[in-house]
């Protein structure tokens, strides 16, 4: 893995995928080191801001030396990002965190599960496991949960996996959450890789325990440095952590992806 750095990235394209959901391609040499499930810190230029915004890498295109970020506008920082046009430059910090442990999925039936804006990092995960990377799974099924019929990235997931959809309002696929969709559509798997809101991750952890399978979950927390120095973004752990020597692990550096059994969520 290359050294982390703060670097300039050129905007190649930006599109709107759904209400408040943006699709940004950036040209950066960080693409060469990017692993599914890792993230970058993106800096707003507004002088009133201090901290980089952690955004997961949705897709990597090494031929164009580009990364794709699919993000939701949630505050003034991401609102600024939404204004960027092709040819503009942004400052990013990366590549951050450890991604999904793809070797754990080698030759296995894998389900990637995403809820809302947790879906994007699973796309590159599905892409690589479907035969485009170093490790190939026996099968890849994407189970994606959305609020309504705005099922952003659905066509992208269909390229690399079977796609099962759950919507809160029942407008598409199973009415309910991703676990409801798993059960209703009899999706079977040996390992789960997931990212989404905390209630969903808790449900996935319980589901994996029930089925006796492994689940790797990507966590989110308020971050400051993004590189493991400030100890802002910690998660409780079952055992004493190897770095902190207390029951806390750093999401930015030791995560954001963890074995669901190792973290107390």
């Amino acid at each position: 893995m290359g050294k982390k750095k703060k670097t300039e990235a050129k905007v190649l394209s930006q599109a709107i995928l759904a209400e408040g959901i943006y699709d940004l391609w950036l040209e950066t040499d960080l693409a060469m080191d990017a692993h599914p499930g890792q993230f970058v810190g993106v800096y707003p230029t507004n002088k009133s801001t201090l901290l980089p915004r952690p955004i997961s890498i949705c897709e990597v295109d090494r031929d164009r030396s580009a990364i794709r970020l699919v993000y939701r506008v949630v505050g003034s920082g991401t609102a600024e990002f939404a204004l960027y046009q092709p040819g503009d430059y942004m400052m990013i910090l990366g590549v951050l965190g450890n991604g999904f442990p793809l070797t754990e999925a080698a030759g296995k039936k894998v389900v990637v599960m995403g809820g809302g804006i947790g879906g994007p990092p699973l796309l590159q995960t599905a892409k690589e496991l479907s035969g485009k990377g170093d490790v190939t799974a026996a099968s890849v099924t994407a189970v994606m949960g959305y609020r309504n019929q705005e099922t952003f990235l659905a066509d992208d997931f269909r390229k690399y996996s079977e796609l099962v959809i759950a919507t809160e309002d029942g407008s598409v696929g199973t009415k309910g959450n991703v676990i409801d969709a798993m059960r209703q559509q009899n999706v079977e798997c040996d390992v789960i890789m997931a990212c989404g809101p905390m209630p969903m991750l808790r449900a996935i952890k319980a589901y994996a325990q029930e089925k006796g399978i492994k689940a790797y979950i990507s966590l989110e927390e308020r971050m400051a440095c993004g590189v493991g120095a400030c100890l802002g973004c910690v998660c409780k752990t079952k055992e004493v952590d190897h770095h902190s020597y207390v029951h806390n692990t750093r999401i930015c550096t030791d995560g954001p992806v963890f074995d669901a059994e190792e973290v107390e969520i």
């Binding site: 009133s48 927390e221 400030c230 100890l231 910690v234 902190s244 806390n248």
Partner: peptide, 26 residues
């Protein structure tokens, strides 16, 4: 070793940030 405070421990404010890490240390 000190476990520090519960999360959220950091937040941005205008021109800076607030932290309440609680001196987590090994």
């Amino acid at each position: 070793p000190w476990p520090g405070n519960p999360v959220p421990r950091v937040t941005e404010v205008y021109g800076g940030m607030l932290n309440a890490i609680g001196l987590q240390n090994p």
